[in-house]
Amino acid sequence: MRATFAVLAKDLRLELRTFETLPAMVLFSLSTFVIFHFALGRSAVGGQLAAGILTVTLLFAALLGAGRLFVAEREQGGFDAFLLAPVDRTSLLAAKAAAMFLFLALLEVVAVPAFGVLLLGPALGPRLPGLIAVLALADLALAVIGTLVSAIAIHTRARDMISPIIGLPLLLPALIASARAAAPVFSVHGSGAPPGKWLLILALYDVVFALIAYAVFDFLLED
């Protein structure tokens, strides 16, 4: 835990100094909403379409952010520094996934209201708790898979390409589940509560891949 917090605090401090990741994710998301507006020729969307636009945008923004996750470690000796310390290797996974989760949550604090203003037809206000539940579970999936894929890709030659081509299919079940879960939230009719079945799938996905990532992460560090 100590090591996890040390790495997480260091990562957040680095982000505060450089502003390399989070602002890029926010700008990317806002641009993507504008692109969807023109590509679809719609001023307001709702239901499944709205859920799809939001989740796809967050997915791509997450992959963008994940690509930066280990760059400082790779280029400035962070991996060696961490490996020289007598700490559990998986604390790096935990810290990076936590950083990724925080970035996504902060991104959504800006991107979801912006989505509500720019594209969303139905009012969001009363249905926010349901959406937060969906996004929290989706962020967990994005953080875990994003960290794992980024750790795999960082030592490859074509890392900017390897990371998304592995990450996209791997995240597809999470995308399906979160898009389906968020659809009722954005619908004019119905209760607006996300269906429990999809939240369950999303939670199952989170748990399974968190455990797998925990089991295999060591092997990505040893040399």
């Binding site: 917090f5 260091k10 680095l14 400082a72 400035q76 000796g77 520094a81 310390a85 007598p86 700490v87």
Partner: peptide, 23 residues
């Protein structure tokens, strides 16, 4: 080693405190 293993965008003090926490 050849590499200092220090983050370029953090100060020397911050870097060393980070390593102190790890160790």
């Amino acid at each position: 080693g050849h590499e200092p293993l220090l983050y370029r965008d953090l100060s020397g003090r911050e870097n060393l405190h980070y390593h102190a926490q790890l160790h």
